[in-house]
């Protein structure tokens, strides 16, 4: 299955990136290009919704870490929505649960963001 990536920006200036399909060595460049494009457009607060991601490997993790580095250079943030155990397991194995904020839903992430302000 190909990777589908789309985005929208909420009224609180959070850009939500919906990702659907498999993120691997073949498809990860598409996600990477999207993250770079958004940062180049001045979108520095990103939330990647991974609820429809069916597969994620270390290449995908590398892209997310790269995106995080880019937004942090602009005092931004990159957080994730993920409840799938098989995807969360990869973040745990690599210790990246300590690096990314991971939420159960877009609403939860937005609520957390409001409290931080």
């Amino acid at each position: 299955m190909d990777l589908k990536v789309s985005d929208y920006t909420t009224d609180d200036d959070l850009t939500v990136i919906n990702v659907e399909g498999e993120i691997d060595v073949y498809t990860a460049p598409k996600l990477r290009e999207k993250l770079i494009d958004l940062v180049n457009k001045g979108k520095y607060h990103l939330l990647v919704d991974m609820e429809k991601v069916e597969f994620l490997d270390s290449t995908g993790l590398g892209v997310l870490v790269g995106g995080l580095k880019r937004v942090r250079a602009h005092d931004g943030s990159l957080e994730l929505v993920c409840t799938q155990e098989r995807i969360l397991k990869i973040f745990r194995i690599t210790g990246l649960t300590k690096v990314f904020g991971i939420f159960d839903s877009v609403d939860d992430a937005r609520e957390h963001r409001k409290k931080q302000k």
Binding site: V25, R32, D57, L61, G62, V63, G66, T94, G95
Partner: peptide
């Protein structure tokens, strides 16, 4: 490097799985 492993995540995943 960014795509494939400046963090050597691949080996961490293999070892963990």
């Amino acid at each position: 490097a960014e795509l494939n492993g400046d963090l050597n995540l691949g080996f961490a995943v293999i070892a963990g799985l």
